[in-house]
Simulated assay, not measured.
Amino acid sequence: MSFRTKKSLGQHFLHDGNIIRKIADAIPAKTGDRVIEIGPGTGALTRELLNRFEDIQVIEIDQRAVEVLNEEFPDLIIHQQDVLKTNWDDLISKTGDTYVVGNLPYYITSPILFSVLEKRDFFKEALFMMQKEVAERLVAEHSSKEYGILSVQTQLMSEPEILFDVSRHSFSPPPRVTSAVIRLRFNKPELPFKDETMKKVVRTAFNQRRKKLSNALKPLLGKELPEGFNYDDRAEHWSPETYAKLSERLEQTDSIS
């Protein structure tokens, strides 16, 4: 069937066979593992995954794409739903590791990323294609202009690595920007504080990133600033590890206001 992409869903379908193979090559799934693809569209990457791995499931919200996938891959397990409302407990492998892969729509990249990071205990790795500018934020070092909330949270919850760039001409229709494929390894030890504590600290700090942290963190900490931190710094100067230390200290002393 003919298929017209929907701008409202941010659809840019990958058609470059070389890039498709490189993405599949980067997934180290083995027998007994499951690969879940987010937003397969009409199945260009799906076909390659099915040729390589025995347990593939996909999440697709567009009914038209689901019809194409059902026709092309009658045995494929398709979850027609919004990925942001997905109950990951129902999808992960009960016998092996679970990998998640997807060409993320630019307009909801961050919400999908945060959703997967929140459920990181379910996954071995994630392999996402996204706008290159966003991928660079995920791996940015502190004190750089790209460093921000995404950088801190992603680096505390995973080990991010940009694998390769993807030209806009590898898609139909071509987006206006270059993309990149990034791998997130979920190999970090469990954080000694709640995710929500760290999120409050980081978001409060970067909410006024031009101010010194002594002022930026006041809405959260009040006037009592825990010792051992340089509050004359600005938000981008603290490493993820420093934010982690402050988050742990605040939970230990129950001093978040």
Rank of each mutant, 00 (worst) to 15 (best):
I112C: 03
L246W: 04
T197S: 11
V152W: 02
L127R: 05
A65E: 04
S93N: 08
R21H: 12
A205C: 10
E72C: 08
E133H: 03
S257H: 10
P28D: 04
L221C: 04
A216L: 04
A126L: 08
L184C: 07
Y107Q: 10
I182Q: 01
I59V: 15
E248W: 07
D254I: 09
I38E: 00
K223T: 15
H169V: 10
F186C: 08
K124Y: 14
L221E: 01
Q11P: 08
R137F: 08
E136P: 05
K145M: 13
F128S: 06
I108L: 06
A29E: 04
G10H: 02
L217Y: 01
K188H: 05
K119C: 14
S8P: 02
S144Q: 11
Y107S: 10
S143H: 07
V68W: 02
P175F: 05
D90H: 07
N187S: 13
I36H: 00
T253N: 11
L250I: 03
M129Q: 01
P192L: 10
N207I: 06
V116L: 15
E133D: 12
I23F: 03
D33Y: 03
Q63F: 13
S93L: 12
G41N: 05
E146D: 15
S172L: 13
L84D: 02
S93H: 06
E241F: 08
L113T: 04
L69F: 05
T197V: 14
G39C: 09
I59P: 01
K194I: 03
F229M: 10
D16C: 11
D62H: 08
P240M: 07
P174N: 04
A126S: 15
E161W: 02
K199T: 15
F128G: 04
V68M: 07
S144M: 06
L225A: 05
V83M: 00
D254A: 13
F13P: 04
E190V: 14
G96T: 13
K212L: 14
I108A: 00
P74A: 09
R120C: 13
H15R: 09
K194L: 15
M198Y: 10
I61N: 01
P189Q: 06
E141D: 12
Q131A: 12
N230R: 11
P28S: 06
E190P: 09
L104K: 00
N230E: 14
H12T: 09
G17I: 10
E136T: 10
L213M: 13
L117K: 00
S115E: 11
L9D: 05
T154W: 02
E146F: 07
L84H: 01
R168G: 10
L45N: 01
L150M: 12
F164D: 07
R234Q: 12
S172K: 11
V201I: 15
W238T: 02
E196K: 09
K85I: 06
F171L: 11
L191S: 06
I36S: 00
